[in-house]
């Protein structure tokens, strides 16, 4: 039987990337589970539980950032959580990526992460986020372009740090 808890690691990974904060991510996952339990009657057996949970998480996330636009993190002088270097070491720390992702508009961040991290088909991303596939594609395109620019900036900064 497919159980909610089997999906926790992936939900946590996605929420972590989406919110950029460990505690906010786990709060979002917990709210998703709560909502999931209260709506279990609406889940159609045979449809995928993970897609259903992601759709719930999407709705909660959208409501959250609509209610309270998070304060934009300043580019410099973020308080010092130690930068965890990615294992496959392309030199990008989680912290750098968090900072970059936080600068993407939430709807672009969502589409990018659902495609890149969750590896969801475009049509499913469209269903999850409730927009046409064309909108998914334009958000993906804009997210990737913005990510490219921001990463270039970051690596410029990293190079400066190494040099000085």
């Amino acid at each position: 039987m497919d159980r909610l808890e089997n999906h926790l690691p992936r939900l946590r990974r996605y929420a972590r990337a989406l919110t950029g904060d460990r505690h906010a991510a786990d709060d979002l996952v917990q709210d998703t589970l709560e909502r999931g339990w209260s709506r279990l009657a609406l889940w159609r057996p045979g449809s995928r539980l993970d897609a259903w949970l992601l759709a719930i998480m999407h709705n909660l996330f959208v409501n959250q950032y609509r209610r309270q636009a998070p304060p934009a993190a300043p580019l410099d002088d973020l308080p010092g959580e130690p930068a965890v270097r990615a294992a496959q070491g392309d030199g990008l720390a989680v912290r750098d990526l968090d900072r970059v992702l936080a600068q993407l508009p939430p709807e672009q961040r969502e589409v990018l992460l659902l495609v890149a991290l969750e590896e969801r088909p475009y049509a499913e991303v469209a269903r999850l986020t409730g927009v046409p596939v064309g909108t998914v594609m334009s958000r993906l395109s804009r997210a990737r372009e913005k990510l490219r620019l921001l990463l270039a900036e970051e690596s410029g900064r990293a190079a400066l740090r190494v040099v000085k």
Partner: peptide, 15 residues
């Protein structure tokens, strides 16, 4: 970009 995102956040799966 896809690979960088996975490399950064995949460790959450092991937590």
């Amino acid at each position: 970009q896809n690979a960088a995102l996975r490399a950064a956040f995949d460790p959450v799966l092991a937590e």
